[in-house]
Design a protein around this nucleic acid. Sequence first.
DNA 1: GACCTTCTGTAGTAGTCGCTACGGAAAACC
DNA 2: GGTTTTCCGTAGCGACTACTACAGAAGGTC
Lengths: 212, 212
Amino acid sequence: MTGTQPLERQRRQEKEKPKGRPRGFDRETALERALTLFWQHGYEATSISGLTKAMGISPPSLYAAFGDKRSLFEEAVARYQESYGAFTPRALTEEPTARGAIERVLHEAAAEFTAPGRPHGCLVISGAVNCGPESADVEAALRDIREASKHAIHDRVVSGVRTGELPADTDTEALAQYYAAVFQGMSTQARDGASRSELEALAELAMRAWPS
Amino acid sequence: MTGTQPLERQRRQEKEKPKGRPRGFDRETALERALTLFWQHGYEATSISGLTKAMGISPPSLYAAFGDKRSLFEEAVARYQESYGAFTPRALTEEPTARGAIERVLHEAAAEFTAPGRPHGCLVISGAVNCGPESADVEAALRDIREASKHAIHDRVVSGVRTGELPADTDTEALAQYYAAVFQGMSTQARDGASRSELEALAELAMRAWPS
DNA sequence: GACCTTCTGTAGTAGTCGCTACGGAAAACC
DNA sequence: GGTTTTCCGTAGCGACTACTACAGAAGGTC
């Protein structure tokens, strides 16, 4: 199992001391810069030369540390989910009510999608939209993450039905898909230049559709 | 003014007879096929070789008839707006009430975004998301169209306020941005495989946010 | 028929793509 | 210090990109 991930990681996790010459750059900050570039331009439009320039390293160093372009992108997406994108599962699990959970997701999205100093919108939503046939699997990988997020919303709605917060005849699938769509629409709006307060108002309006 | 558009078009519009050898393919069907390919993969991920293959012509024929890749994309987008995308301004102008107009836009979008035999979702929304720095202007051009659509929605909402259909204190900007976001979210959902009936239910839910 | 204009197919341009072979540099172990 | 192991920079790989020079073919006008 662990054999499938890069040797690099295994060693770091097991805290073994590397034997030869240590690398001359910080792997985490390099990954962070790659993440930012992918976030701006998406998978295919981000070139290796652009990445090496932004990461401050040469191509061989990049390939030695991260494998190929696809692996680097996957690792960047994983990092994104653990950092910038972590607010969504957090809100869904921490809030006591389903309505509160969804509301918090949307309002935190309004802030996260427009946070200064980093690209606007969501990497998972806009990171691999325009893909050629040879990288269709990358596009599919992000789609799977989006579907998983929708299911997470759905699960929270279903649990709201179970506790009696929502009517028993609630169309949980439709409600989950609706809020997933609003979430994705907010990302597009943020990319197009919408401000945080505009997205807050948008989120507030979206909550008016909540079953009463 | 007219000098800025390709000579080709001028001649067609003026119904002059071309002098030399006529071209061996139908320009409209070739453009339609290019449009479909751009719709599937987006601007940058669609290559000239893919286009020539889909259009059934050779590169020199493509460049003679359409200029460069960017011009071809612009013309494809224009064609899209006049055909597949024309339902939006039509719904906004034809319906007597603002609510009816928005509702019709969303329901027709549910059908259009999932119509069989052609790519799902909206070309203007997903056609130029992942762009490198050298084609940032293409990305911006589609964004301008999206902004124009949002303004069209806003205008319809404002006219609804004027006629008394909507309360005078309605936040028209927020309402327009909300429905624009829902529209864009529906496109993403359609691209991810949502069915027409699912999008219909989504549209129905979105209308529950309408001010009462 | 000749002539003229335009289109079409081959073939190739310079440039960039993702990726890597190779030699030297640098740090840890003995 | 010597050896070993790894990393780094240069330089370049084949394949692809958008795009085009050129020659010949094909239809119109005379």
